[in-house]
Design a protein around this nucleic acid. Structure first.
Length: 207
DNA sequence: ATTTATCTCCGGTTAGCCTA
DNA sequence: TAGGCTAACCGGAGATAAAT
């Protein structure tokens, strides 16, 4: 084996585990939406090798399930507009869907929105093969995918979800089951309730 | 030529088998 | 036992053929 090949193998390769835009956007969000005057810490970013957790004081003003489609109610509008002006974060309302879009492009697991007592937390996960995801993770990914599609006037379909998860067309039967899981979980529903099962289109449960 | 009937293709779903 | 794969099934849409 040539020497440089040995060296190459010995060197650690740096790969972008987390899309930068997504992290930046989420941190900016945490700053903007933090509730001041809450005892304890300010916004906090914890980095693990398989995930990043971004936590800020203050519970969210909108339901976490509606993060994608609801325009944000900013706690600190002055700070928000300043950060927008400095291009630190996106324009109003386009933040979270950009994050989801990035995550889908990189085929990362769906982010998790948590509301620990008095806080808001977003967990961003490093890449994980579809096979390693459990049912809850798949359902979450389905749901957010449907939300993302919905806000861009599109729909979740078997094909779109295949693309999202990076599965080949021959495995569309599996994807049908993932859709089924999400429907059973009540997070998405068929766009046309009484459509036959052809060219099925799905939307988030609240649409 | 326009309408109507039939065919074929295709995306999607379900069921069942098989393997790790 | 869950997930990958295949086969069978379903029904809509466009294409083609037939009828007026």
């Amino acid at each position: 084996m040539p020497v440089n090949e040995v060296i190459e193998k010995a060197l650690r390769k740096t790969v972008a585990v987390f899309p930068e835009l997504a992290v930046r956007e989420l941190v900016a969000n945490a700053l903007i939406h933090q509730a001041f005057f809450v005892t304890g810490a300010g916004p906090m970013v914890e980095i693990f090798d398989d995930r990043i957790e971004i936590t800020n004081p203050g519970e969210p003003l909108v339901d976490t399930q509606r993060f994608v489609d609801t325009p944000p109610k900013s706690r600190n509008e002055t700070l928000a507009s300043m950060m927008r002006r400095f291009r630190i974060c996106e324009e109003r309302g386009s933040g979270i869907d950009k994050v989801i879009a990035q995550i889908e492009i990189y085929q990362l697991p769906a982010p998790l929105f948590e509301v620990p007592e008095g806080f808001t937390r977003v967990v961003l996960f490093a890449h994980k093969p579809l096979i390693a995801m459990d049912k809850a993770e798949r359902v979450r990914a389905c749901y957010l995918h449907a939300c993302l599609k919905y806000v861009s006037r599109e729909f979740l379909t078997n094909a779109s979800l295949r693309e999202r998860f990076g599965v080949e067309e021959k495995n569309k039967a599996a994807v049908s089951r993932y859709i089924r899981e999400a429907v059973d979980a009540g997070v998405i529903k068929p766009f046309d309730e009484d459509a036959a099962r052809k060219l099925m289109k799905y939307v988030p449960f609240w649409a």
